[in-house]
Design a protein around this nucleic acid. Structure first.
Lengths: 183, 183
DNA sequence: TTTCAAAGTAACACAAGTGTTACTTTGGAC
DNA sequence: GTCCAAAGTAACACTTGTGTTACTTTGAAA
């Protein structure tokens, strides 16, 4: 009953993601997005009132997917298995942290994103508490700092192009046992 | 022989810093800067051709100061003392990392900033090598990853407002020995 | 084949940032 | 007091992004 669309929601979101990551919140424009989709700028206004609405929608979509994955942590028994799962998940979704930060820049939506962020941290409290109860995690470290520490580490820039597998295994080692030797 | 200036270079740099950190590279404008200095926009063009030149100048100035401090690491004997010095320095200059990232966004100046960045890392190679030779640092971890890991950790957002001293001591603990208990 | 609603476009008016120019203000040297 | 160079301003022309409107295109249902 209608004309065929020139771009799917998925293509729209992929282009949005690429532009957000390369240009940041302030540098992202509908003109750039329209060009990258080979579509007129006006067409985008058929779907979103403005860039803030699009960005908010997109990042929420991305975070929903992420949270869904995250909740699979409960399929694993014991702290160590859950930690491995969490670390692997983080490395395969390493852009999410950047996107959340961008989301927090959207005027009038900071609260929404802060809420989601704290919700995510609250959801992982059980995981941290489990680690502490099992005697695996250091009890004197604040829960949220442990979580922030884990999430932050995937964002380290790899300037010297260390191979991915070495990168991941080294980071896991440092997160768990630090940079110092034990002797 | 001339009229009195309405703002000093230091005031200019402080205002630039505040705006860069709050608005990012793309969001930083001469209009904002002029307003925050209570001066007309045109006046700024007396000193800098455009925002890129100002930002580059400012961040280089900031990094020069930082490198100067950093070189005091050689005043300390032994790896452990140097590590403590480095960690304390990082926490007191925690914004530098963000500013360097912003600098890397300046069109046509990415190379300059990458150079400075790698220079800084090269300067710290001695420190890392010393740690490895003394058997204090894990030898199998890539040098630049260790450095990136240390620098990145000061940028963790403190959403739950953990007191500064607990924040710093916890991070030092995690960087050195990880999040897991030893037993 | 006609119809019509969704998809898309082109163009307008507006706002904000940029860089420049011609101008005024200031204050020490003379 | 006069001069003049540095400091600062106001305004112009230009560019880019925004949101809207009137328009055309498309394709399946009737």
């Amino acid at each position: 009953m209608a004309r065929e669309r020139k771009f799917s929601t998925d293509e729209l979101f992929q282009a949005t993601k690429a532009l957000l990551l390369s240009h940041g919140y302030e540098g992202f424009t509908f003109s750039l997005l329209a060009d990258s989709l080979n579509v007129s700028r006006g067409a985008l206004y058929k779907y979103y009132e403005n860039k803030d609405e699009l960005i908010t929608n997109y990042i929420f979509y991305e975070m929903d997917q992420y949270l869904l994955k995250l909740k699979q942590i409960n399929l694993y028994q014991g702290f160590e298995a859950q930690l491995q799962f969490l670390l692997d998940l983080m490395f395969s979704y390493s852009n999410i942290q950047k996107l959340i930060k961008i989301g927090q820049q959207v005027p009038g939506h900071q609260d929404k994103f802060k809420t989601i962020h704290t919700d995510m941290y609250r959801f992982l409290q059980d995981f941290v508490e489990l680690g502490k109860k099992e005697g695996k995690l250091k009890c004197h470290l604040p829960n949220n700092l442990i979580l922030g520490y884990i999430f932050q580490s995937v964002a380290i820039p790899n300037h010297s192009e260390i191979p991915y597998s070495l990168w991941v295994s080294s980071l896991k080692e440092m997160i768990c046992h630090g940079i110092l030797s034990n002797n």
